[in-house]
Amino acid sequence: MRSRGYWLYLIPSLVLFVGVIVAPFLMNVATSFTRWSGVGTPEWIGFENYDRLLKDERFWASFQHNVALILAMAVVPTLLGLVLAAALFDYIAKKFGPRTASALRAAFYLPQVLPVAIAGVVWGWLLHPSYGAVNEIFGIDVNWLGDPSIALATVMAIMVWFQLGYPVVIFMAGLQRVDPALYEAAEIDGASWWRRFWHITVPQIRPEFFVVLLTCTIAALKVFGPIFVLTRGGPAGATMVPSYFSYLNFFQRVNVGYGSAIATVLALIIVVVTFLFLRVQERET
């Protein structure tokens, strides 16, 4: 009886969601089938933008860079974070006390508290070609972000630095759940650190493992701030990613239809990746 009338509370959200998310998203999809400069009437051209997209080398290159960034923002931090969390939890905290472990954890985590654009500001200064601190310290003259052959690798390294703390903190929190008796029993049985890692730590934090991998992969697919701040997709498109590519088409090249097609494909990929992850996670746990 009480459950009547509760839907009234959804009305403000309904209005706002339609206005801010549903309608704009549908408009974006519709625009992707047109040629439009942002003023005047959009001209319906069917699948032409998508056709062009499939043949556009810069578009494919931008997705390859995205894969590289998934490696740098999701795969490497997750695997490295797993080993670091296990080392801090099962070794450092026991041999040197929990305070040492949490101090190290805080140091790994600090980059994560920054807005990602500010992380870009920090590294933009450190790697500046004429006065950057890194070149000054090592007495070298490398144009880290301006040389097309190394710019992507540089951005990847910066993103590993930025992301690493997140999996470490999540995994260490997950390990709190594990019954300490499990580790003690394994130790008494003479199981090596590596065996404990593989047979206790990894299976115990499986749920966290999937969540971290999913959230970091989505973040990598969406990455915009560091690219904007550090390279603007350059030099010569060496660090172009889909999100920046769509931004460029929207606001600088006024190819709104083409930009919308890129954004629609990106949205589709992200939704599909999310569902795949959730399916795998359901089966695994």
Binding site: I21, A23, P24, F25, T31, A263, L266, T274
Partner: peptide, 23 residues
């Protein structure tokens, strides 16, 4: 309804930005 909210949360802002800008 919850699934809709969840999808809305994962959508990239790039796919909303131009219509919002226009509006």
């Amino acid at each position: 309804i919850l699934v809709v909210f969840l999808v809305a949360n994962t959508l990239p802002q790039e796919a909303l930005v131009y219509p919002l800008y226009y509006l």
